[in-house]
Computed example of a mutant assay.
Amino acid sequence: MQKKSPVLVTAGAGYIGSHVALALLDAGWPVVVLDDLSTGFETLVPSQATFVRGDVGDRQLVGHMFRDHGIEAIVHLAGSIVVSESVAHPLRYYENNTARSCALIEAAVESGMAHFLFSSTAAVYGSPERVPISETDPTSPINPYGQSKLMIETMLADAAKAHGFNYCALRYFNVAGADPQGRSGQLTDSATHLIKIAAEAAVGRRAHVEIYGEDYPTPDGTAVRDYIHVADLAAAHVRALEKLVADPGTSRVLNCGYGRGYSVREVLDSVDRVAGRPVARRPGPRRAGDPPILVADNRRILAELGWTPRFDDLDGIVADALAWERRQLPGAAAAAVPLTMTR
């Protein structure tokens, strides 16, 4: 591409997708959002983006979109993401994630799409043999969610070799927070992500936070994760797209995390600090498919994309999540007291 041509963002009405769309628009990329609104919200689609309601697995629709909007790159974020749900309903995940992604890749190949940026996951590593986890470490998912994403990575690698496009798979670690400017955040009422749940509890939308497992082989017995601010993740997508365009002969697989892990208890302590009051905690059983520790080795993404995190502070991530939750409360516009954090 000689100029910034339109980019298709699937699931651009969702939590991560809306932030990615905002970051692309901020960087001067025209954005077309495709979302079926099964879990997304049209209110999260940036006003500057073109919105199409539909299914990423609808090859005819997608093909028309490519032609009508002159799309030359895809940022594919659509899919189901709840680990425990994938264990209970594996075929649903293979259908929604893997099969629909296959249809999207086929449509991209048929249209001569040049660049494909894919939202993958640290769940492809399963229970890692060591931490931090490098991109060259073994991939051995322990749940259908991770397996479905790994299958998509394999499809992209094979299709790119056969059809001459390049791709980048960003393996997300635990995404949290909200847009620092307050333009987007997580709206779902059935959240499973710890910081979102804890922020809801801190503003009175939940009575407590359940700690799923206190017997993991970690320093305090709770699971450890590498939490990345959604704004930094969105910025990584912009850098990855720029690299795909600048280096069309190379495809990449990159971890997207900070390289620092926090336990569930450490996260809840942060929420207590930022909120100024303790959040009630209750012990619960482990969730199916959850590994004890996931922490990124992020040296490759730092070196290859020149990506520099701006919001890599746990209390800051929590503060932005809390600020978003407070904006969602009735009468928030008039009554909310903004949180201030020194970055």
Rank of each mutant, 00 (worst) to 15 (best):
residue 257 G to E: 05
residue 117 L to A: 10
residue 224 V to A: 12
residue 58 D to V: 09
residue 218 T to M: 13
residue 241 L to K: 05
residue 323 A to E: 09
residue 190 S to Y: 05
residue 48 Q to K: 15
residue 88 A to Y: 04
residue 50 T to S: 14
residue 198 A to N: 05
residue 310 R to F: 05
residue 237 H to V: 01
residue 39 T to L: 02
residue 281 R to W: 05
residue 235 A to Q: 12
residue 182 G to S: 00
residue 305 L to D: 02
residue 106 E to S: 14
residue 26 D to H: 10
residue 249 G to S: 07
residue 128 P to F: 00
residue 44 L to T: 09
residue 292 P to N: 12
residue 32 V to D: 07
residue 258 Y to D: 08
residue 297 D to S: 05
residue 272 D to L: 10
residue 230 V to Q: 07
residue 56 V to R: 03
residue 44 L to K: 05
residue 116 F to D: 02
residue 16 I to P: 07
residue 14 G to V: 11
residue 279 V to Y: 07
residue 302 L to D: 03
residue 15 Y to E: 04
residue 211 I to V: 14
residue 312 D to T: 07
residue 13 A to W: 01
residue 212 Y to A: 12
residue 336 A to L: 11
residue 162 A to N: 12
residue 114 A to C: 08
residue 147 Q to C: 10
residue 206 R to N: 07
residue 124 V to F: 00
residue 73 A to L: 03
residue 298 N to H: 15
residue 337 V to E: 15
residue 67 R to E: 14
residue 30 P to F: 07
residue 45 V to Q: 12
residue 58 D to K: 11
residue 96 N to H: 06
residue 55 D to T: 01
residue 183 R to F: 14
residue 240 A to R: 03
residue 186 Q to E: 06
residue 217 P to E: 10
residue 94 Y to V: 03
residue 285 P to F: 08
residue 268 L to E: 01
residue 334 A to Y: 09
residue 262 Y to M: 03
residue 167 Y to C: 07
residue 9 V to K: 09
residue 320 D to C: 06
residue 91 L to W: 12
residue 1 M to I: 09
residue 189 D to F: 00
residue 94 Y to E: 01
residue 264 V to R: 05
residue 185 G to H: 01
residue 97 N to H: 04
residue 88 A to R: 14
residue 283 P to C: 05
residue 209 V to K: 00
residue 50 T to V: 13
residue 182 G to C: 00
residue 28 G to K: 06
residue 164 G to V: 04
residue 26 D to I: 06
residue 197 I to P: 02
residue 137 D to Y: 12
residue 209 V to T: 03
residue 88 A to S: 11
residue 286 R to P: 04
residue 53 R to D: 05
residue 33 V to H: 15
residue 54 G to M: 07
residue 213 G to R: 04
residue 125 Y to Q: 09
residue 321 A to F: 10
residue 139 T to W: 08
residue 117 L to Y: 12
residue 77 L to E: 10
residue 339 L to E: 13
residue 225 R to S: 05
residue 24 L to F: 11
residue 307 W to L: 13
residue 313 D to Y: 11
residue 261 G to T: 05
residue 100 R to L: 15
residue 231 A to P: 06
residue 59 R to T: 15
residue 33 V to R: 14
residue 2 Q to F: 10
residue 151 M to C: 15
residue 199 A to W: 00
residue 105 I to G: 07
residue 293 I to F: 07
residue 105 I to K: 08
residue 152 I to S: 04
residue 288 A to G: 11
residue 219 P to R: 06
residue 256 C to K: 11
residue 174 N to K: 04
residue 160 A to Y: 04
residue 109 V to M: 08
residue 36 D to K: 08
residue 253 V to T: 09
residue 133 I to M: 15
residue 12 G to Q: 01
residue 60 Q to A: 12
residue 10 T to I: 12
residue 330 P to L: 10
residue 156 L to S: 08
residue 283 P to T: 06
residue 154 T to Q: 10
residue 197 I to V: 14
residue 188 T to Q: 00
residue 200 E to Q: 08
residue 241 L to V: 06
residue 185 G to E: 00
residue 112 G to P: 02
residue 11 A to T: 02
residue 27 A to G: 02
residue 74 I to F: 14
residue 122 A to F: 09
residue 39 T to C: 02
residue 35 D to A: 08
residue 260 R to A: 14
residue 19 H to D: 08
residue 135 E to P: 02
residue 319 A to Y: 11
